[in-house]
Structures are given as C-alpha cells and as structure tokens.
C-alpha cells in the first residue's frame, strides 16, 4: 500500500472514531491555528479541485444529415434510403444491442451509444462504405428479433419446416 493510501485509511478510521469536527480541531490545535482558519483553507482546496474537475460545457454536435453522407456515394443512395426505412420500422438492427454488434463488427466504438435512433448516424457512415451487393443482402434479410438458436437447429435436425 502506498504512503498516501495508508494515510487516507488512517484518517478515515480516525474520522469514524472521533468525527470530522474533532479531527479538525485537533489538527488546528497542533498547528497553533484557529479551527475557522483551517476550515477556510479546506474550503479553498475544495474550490480549486472542483474548478479542475468541472467539465467544460459539451459542444453541440451538428445535427446529422443523411443527404450529406449520401452525396459522397450517390450510386448507393437508393439502397441506403431503403435500409433507413427498414431501420425506422425496426426491421433492420431491431434493438440497440443489434446496432452495437453491427458497429462493433465493423470496428466502430460503441460505448457512447445511448439510443437506437441516435445511433443511425454511425450506422449510415458504415453502410456508405459497404459494396452495393452487401447492402442488397442487408435489405433482403428478414428481421431476426424472434430468433431462437435452438429452434432453428432443432427444426433442421428433425426435418421440420
């Protein structure tokens, strides 16, 4: 254990045993200071720490425009618009976890994703890089939210349709 960690542990125990006020008064007495002076120093330290850790206001992200992305590859515009409709109808990447998986497979970070609708901007940026045959496969695939791994294998083994 590091020296600072040990000190913090010992202080925590003392604070539990005697209370914060008693500890402050004892330190003030040892240093020959008034308790009020010591409290003022602690308040100043707290203010400095707070100023350091305060996050700057988040910059507003510009609203996403699918048209600006599609302009870069106009030949894919139609198929991607159709995929967008499927996405909005929850027929493609039906849940947020499916979106995460799709982006992860394409090497995109997913830890900041909060909602499925917000995530579409990222999805489009991946889609625009895919070849048209792959986009067409995405468009033709049935939604799989009712998917059961055991069910499909069981049906196949037992020859059920």
């Amino acid at each position: 254990m590091k020296q600072t960690e040990l000190l913090r542990l010992q202080l925590a125990i003392l604070m539990l045993q005697h209370g914060e006020r008693a500890i402050l008064e004892s330190i003030a007495s040892l240093r020959g200071q008034d308790t009020g002076d010591l409290e003022a120093i602690l308040v100043d330290i707290d203010k400095i720490r707070h100023a350091r850790t305060k996050k700057p206001p988040a910059a507003k992200t510009p609203s996403f425009s699918i048209e600006s992305v599609l302009r870069t590859h106009p030949e894919k515009a139609d198929v991607i618009r159709s995929i967008q409709t499927r996405y909005e109808d929850k027929a493609f990447l039906t849940e947020l976890k499916d979106v995460r998986r799709f982006l992860d497979r394409h090497g995109q970070p997913t830890n900041t994703l909060k909602t499925r609708s917000e995530a579409f901007a990222k999805v489009v940026r991946v889609l625009i890089e895919l070849p048209i045959p792959e986009l067409e496969v995405i468009l033709s695939n049935a939604p799989s939210n009712e998917f059961s791994g055991l069910g499909v294998i069981s049906d196949q083994i037992l020859g059920r349709k």
């Binding site: 791994g149 499909v152 294998i153 049906d155």
Partner: peptide, 15 residues
C-alpha cells in the same frame, strides 16, 4: 460450426 457461424447461418449451410 454453430458457435463461429451463429445457428442461423449454420442452418442455412445445411439447407
């Protein structure tokens, strides 16, 4: 085969 492909793709392979 099922773990790598996913059951859905594996069944397609059989079909």
């Amino acid at each position: 085969s099922q773990a790598i492909l996913s059951p859905e793709k594996y069944v397609k392979l059989l079909k």
